[in-house]
Measured scan of single mutants.
Amino acid sequence: IGSLMYASIFGNVSAIIQRLYSGTARYHTQMLRVREFIRFHQIPNPLRQRLEEYFQHAWSYTNGIDMNAVLKGFPECLQADICLHLNRSLLQHCKPFRGATKGCLRALAMKFKTTHAPPGDTLVHAGDLLTALYFISRGSIEILRGDVVVAILGKNDIFGEPLNLYARPGKSNGDVRALTYCDLHKIHRDDLLEVLDMYPEFSDHFWSSLEITFNLRDTNMIPGSPGSTELEGGFSRQRKRKLSFRRRTDKDTEQPGEVSALGPGRAGAGPSSRGRPGGPWGESPSSGPSSPESSEDEGPGRSSSPLRLVPFSSPRPPGEPPGGEPLMEDCEKSSDTCNPLSGAFSGVSNIFSFWGDSRGRQYQELPRCPAPTPSLLNIPLSSPGRRPRGDVESRLDALQRQLNRLETRLSADMATVLQLLQRQMTLVPPAYSAVTTPGPGPTSTSPLLPVSPLPTLTLDSLSQVSQFMACEELPPGAPELPQEGPTRRLSLPGQLGALTSQPLHRHGSDPG
């Protein structure tokens, strides 16, 4: 009997000691992992102490058991019943959930998450997105703005933001810190809205009876308010094209079509300037034949640059190039080494500058006005007194259609001029006259002087055409309008007829 009692007592005591040691061994194993994590990542002392304290409290609170892992091991129907039991206190005593059906309560219970916070733990920081609604079931918390405590909340209090009033989550206007050990039930806004969409009859009752104890939403960050730039940057990543407008005076608003859609830094370009900076079609017209890549860069430059609305530039004389043409100036200075066709295309550029300027006046029909002061630039669209967005969009579309028509007509005119030049060069190729044979009589004449090349004649003739079109064909006081194609086609051969009437002889060394 004594040996039996000794064996039973010894066996029970050893089993008890073994169970104690097993729990202690698990605790030390998990604690060792936490300390190894702290050492590996070199976490500083204040945060390291918070980690160790939280682990110790969580171990004593749950005995080292992962409740979520245990809950996920059950089937979904059983999980709903378990969640309904775990959140029964909240669902029974909170006013917004009263009167809900059994199915609605089960769906809500599945969406709730339980959070346990030790003292000093910050649940929400200032500036964080308010993605959830919090219900306090135990403990107390404090809300701070800077170093000032603005509120202390306790059991059955609710904090967050009214989700039904805002389409997008706002930002917190303060820090939420736990004063004691707290148990909180939180539900994400997407989950709550999903359940309320499934039960629309409960939705009206819920929003009407929901009383948020403390609204954390920062009202200064609401979209459309003066301080909402940061919020707009976070939620409006896919922005449309940006529009900046110059201020319109009362006198300017009476004149229709007073602005032109141009790229940034293009205030001095012609009315047909689009795409790359520098001139019509993204580059100076005089350098068009020598740089074919300008047409390839036109599309990307047009689509990537934001639109700006600026006044037209001052008018340019008909014979003056659009500006920024070092290529043609070098050719004029060193005409001995340049291609003979460069002079002809220089005359073509003069005609283009004249036609572009006159067509700009035809479509816009307003006098040039000086540029406004820099303080009046970049007025935002949302400022008071601005035109409605639809009106601005319609004006932009009208300007775009005008620019497209202008570009089409300029292309047709350019093709006409090039065809005339090619026809003239085919009839009378460039050549130098040879020395004529002296006559049989004693009164022999001296050799004839060489005839100037055709490109120079073409430049003079085209300059005469531009001056003739600019000065004589337009009646005084009438708006400057571009001439039609047949009129220009008839004027060019008439001007060139006198020049080509002389018999030109080919030089023996000319390969053409």
Rank of each mutant, 00 (worst) to 15 (best):
S501L: 13
P372V: 10
G347Y: 09
G439D: 12
L130T: 02
G324D: 09
C338L: 09
S375D: 04
N350G: 11
P372M: 10
A132R: 06
V435M: 11
F202D: 13
S444N: 13
F206K: 01
Q502T: 04
Y432D: 08
D157S: 05
E407A: 06
A344F: 04
H185Y: 04
Q502L: 11
L133F: 04
A269W: 08
S140Y: 07
Q364R: 10
Q483L: 08
R239F: 12
V149N: 03
L381V: 13
T416K: 04
S314N: 12
S314W: 08
P380G: 11
Y166L: 04
D413I: 15
V259D: 10
G508D: 13
P318G: 15
P450A: 09
A434Q: 15
Q495V: 10
R145E: 11
M425Y: 11
R506L: 13
S236D: 12
L216P: 01
W207T: 10
A498F: 08
R389H: 13
M414K: 01
T131H: 14
G347M: 06
G497H: 07
F354G: 10
S444I: 11
G497V: 10
G508P: 14
V176H: 01
N215H: 01
K186V: 13
P318S: 11
P455Y: 05
D250C: 11
G323T: 14
N339A: 13
D460K: 15
P289F: 04
A151S: 06
P442I: 05
L410I: 08
E230N: 12
A478M: 15
P318E: 13
R138A: 10
E473S: 11
R316L: 13
G288E: 10
D190W: 08
S244P: 08
P493Y: 11
N404S: 13
P340E: 11
R248T: 11
E254C: 13
D357N: 05
A344H: 15
L216D: 01
L376Y: 14
Y166D: 11
D510A: 09
G154L: 04
K240G: 11
F468Y: 13
V148D: 13
L153P: 01
G160E: 01
H507L: 03
P322E: 10
E329M: 12
S346A: 08
R237M: 11
S305N: 03
R386P: 13
L216H: 01
T373N: 08
S304G: 13
R386Y: 15
R145H: 09
L454M: 15
L163T: 12
P388V: 06
P511A: 06
P162T: 04
R401A: 06
L474P: 05
D297F: 12
T229D: 12
P453T: 09
A431L: 12
L129Q: 12
G356I: 08
N156K: 07
Q502F: 05
P372I: 09
E332A: 12
P289R: 10
H188M: 06
R316A: 15
L481T: 10
H505D: 10
K155A: 11
P264A: 09
K240H: 12
L144D: 03
I351C: 08
S305L: 14
L366S: 08
E211C: 10
S346M: 08
V417G: 01
R302M: 12
L399N: 01
Q495C: 13
K242F: 07
R247G: 13
L377N: 09
L504W: 13
S509M: 09
K240I: 09
T437M: 11
E332T: 08
G323S: 07
G441Y: 12
L366C: 09
C369Q: 13
S383W: 05
P169L: 04
G288A: 13
R405A: 06
G224A: 09
S452R: 10
P374W: 05
D252W: 13
S260P: 11
S284D: 15
Q424K: 08
P315R: 06
P374L: 09
I152Y: 04
E254S: 11
S172G: 02
V148L: 10
Y181Q: 06
R217V: 04
L153F: 01
N173M: 14
H205P: 07
S461M: 08
T180A: 04
S433D: 09
H205Q: 09
V392Q: 15
L406T: 11
G494S: 10
R266D: 14
E393Y: 01
S463Y: 09
P486T: 04
D330Y: 08
S383A: 06
Q255H: 06
S353H: 09
R217S: 11
D297Q: 04
S466T: 08
P511W: 15
L327Q: 13
E254R: 10
V176E: 02
A398K: 12
Q483F: 13
D157M: 06
S272K: 04
D204V: 13
R168N: 14
Y134R: 02
V348M: 13
M425Q: 05
G265I: 10
N156D: 09
S236A: 10
E161Y: 03
R274L: 10
Q419L: 04
L130E: 01
F354E: 07
P442K: 04
L462I: 07
K251Y: 12
S334Q: 10
A434N: 09
P380S: 08
F135R: 02
R189L: 04
G265R: 12
R246K: 13
T180M: 03
D297W: 12
R248F: 10
P318M: 06
D190A: 08
K155E: 06
P447N: 14
A415L: 05
R239K: 10
C338P: 10
G170T: 01
P300Q: 04
I152T: 11
P493F: 11
S273W: 15
K242H: 08
A261H: 10
N156S: 09
D250S: 11
F214Y: 12
P482N: 14
D175M: 12
T373F: 06
R405D: 03
W207G: 03
P200K: 04
T253N: 14
L399Y: 08
D250Y: 08
G299S: 13
R395G: 09
R168L: 11
R302A: 12
D336E: 07
N156C: 06
T456H: 14
T229H: 08
G288L: 09
G227F: 09
Y181C: 03
L457F: 10
P306D: 15
F352H: 14
A371E: 13
S225T: 12
V149E: 03
G360S: 10
Y134P: 01
L341H: 12
L210I: 12
N215Q: 01
G127E: 03
T213E: 03
G139C: 03
T337N: 04
R386C: 05
D204E: 11
C369R: 15
P285K: 04
P326M: 12
D510F: 05
T458H: 07
A412W: 12
E473G: 12
L421S: 04
P285H: 11
F202E: 14
D191P: 01
S346L: 06
V195Q: 01
L196E: 02
A498Q: 07
E230P: 13
R409C: 08
S236M: 12
R423K: 06
Q362H: 13
E365I: 08
L406V: 15
E325W: 06
P450M: 06
Y432Q: 14
P317R: 06
E472Q: 07
Y432K: 07
P453A: 10
V428N: 04
G299M: 13
P226F: 11
A415M: 11
K171E: 03
R217N: 13
F468M: 07
K251I: 09
S287C: 13
A267T: 12
L504A: 10
D190T: 10
P511H: 09
S314L: 09
P511I: 06
L193T: 06
A470G: 12
P442R: 09
G234P: 11
R409V: 10
N339S: 09
T180F: 02
S272L: 12
S236N: 09
N404D: 01
N378F: 03
P271G: 09
H188N: 12
Q502S: 12
R395D: 03
I141S: 01
A412G: 07
T213Q: 03
E480C: 09
A178T: 12
P384T: 14
R409D: 05
Q362C: 08
L133M: 07
L410P: 04
G508Q: 12
L492A: 12
P493E: 06
T229Q: 08
G127M: 01
D413W: 03
L496N: 08
P256N: 12
R359I: 12
S313E: 09
L427W: 15
R237P: 12
P380Y: 01
P440V: 10
R274T: 04
S461F: 04
P315G: 10
F312T: 10
